[in-house]
Design a protein around this nucleic acid. Sequence first.
DNA 1: AAGAAAAACGAACGATCGTTCTTGTACCAC
DNA 2: GTGGTACAAGAACGATCGTTCGTTTTTCTT
Lengths: 227, 227
Amino acid sequence: MTPDTLTADGTTAPVVPDGRKVKGDKTRRAILTAAVNVASVEGLEGLSIGRLASELNMSKSGLFSHFGSKEELQVSTVRAAAAIFAHRVIAPAVEVHEPGLARLCSMLLAWQDYIERGVFAGGCFFAAATVEMDGRPGPVRDAVAAQMTRWAGLLTEYIQEAIDRGELRPETDPVQLAFELDALGTAVNSGWQLHEDAAVFERGRRALRRRLEADATEAGLAVLASR
Amino acid sequence: MTPDTLTADGTTAPVVPDGRKVKGDKTRRAILTAAVNVASVEGLEGLSIGRLASELNMSKSGLFSHFGSKEELQVSTVRAAAAIFAHRVIAPAVEVHEPGLARLCSMLLAWQDYIERGVFAGGCFFAAATVEMDGRPGPVRDAVAAQMTRWAGLLTEYIQEAIDRGELRPETDPVQLAFELDALGTAVNSGWQLHEDAAVFERGRRALRRRLEADATEAGLAVLASR
DNA sequence: AAGAAAAACGAACGATCGTTCTTGTACCAC
DNA sequence: GTGGTACAAGAACGATCGTTCGTTTTTCTT
């Protein structure tokens, strides 16, 4: 889609057609990595250019010139966070497991792992960004909403694949199930951030498993049992 | 507990021992009502004293003197929101239904109703406040966390009552079920705020019902069927 | 090595933030 | 009526916000 490649830290690095790196991009990625972390704690609105600059030992104007406006910085931060999420949660499940219930289940557990391991300082970036931006119109909100739609679509797609493979019952409503699975994951993030009680992860895993079992066929139960 | 009485709009009005109203309290309540609405959209941190003052056609310093600090305004706002929530969601369920599954179910539906009817401009105040404040220490976070703990405790308590009455299966884990029910309600709020798709309410109701049915006894199923 | 292009800097802008202090105003007891 | 008391207004503070501008430093090309 875009001519971006995924780098090790999950941020994107634009490349020109012949493959040479665009110069100055290293700084930009360093900024966005820090921005995602700050925003996961302080929020996308609480992310201030001056604070971010001093944290990176650079000047406010130097940082600013990479984006041209705060709004552009925020949108870029959302995209960087999405790349990290894709790298840490989606990619492992896709690489290791074939389509179906195994892939779906693996991705959901990877999501919890990424919350538990504290990939972002303030917990799941999108859980925070969604609630923060959902009330105010503008490009930043649209960027967040687009990512959340993508995520819900991905869940729905994987569920549909599991149905097609006969691992979930054919009368399963994919959108409904995706809604509930997302709800549980988000609640795990909130519970962990608010109470720092690690028991929430076990609760989350139990809830996910029971919810999937409720719609699983015998073939699906076998897949779940093997995990 | 506190010498406060619940007023019509859900905010609290302090009374002195002989019952006379403390003067100037009307202004304070008007401020907090507006503050809760602004904070539900802009967040507790985005709530600015100057903006709030101009919205109420009063001076910044005049408003400020009611609280003495922004932090105190934020904590008071959290308490005011809790009172409104109690008035709109908890009280109706307690008044109409006796303890047990009926009360629990009624409260969960009242919660969805309060989200759907837009009691706060930015959706459920606590869903927003929780995610916003969960990362930063201080009295405001503590106030929010205390309310969320109260809410989780209330859900757990009502579930336990339903177990004791034989409406939910005795092996039901109240904390686990409370976690899942709260997850679904919160997801309804997010879905509504982000996509403005009213279908999320039907999804939420279906998910709540199916989750309760999964742990219900025959007596419990009868209660659920009658609703 | 020289010149062009890009990146970073430092200073300053108007605006708004939370907060303080002083002044004016309404009300209530005496 | 008069004095006291709580409430509200107004001006101003230092700090920080996003942003602009002109200059300097770095980097790449040739």
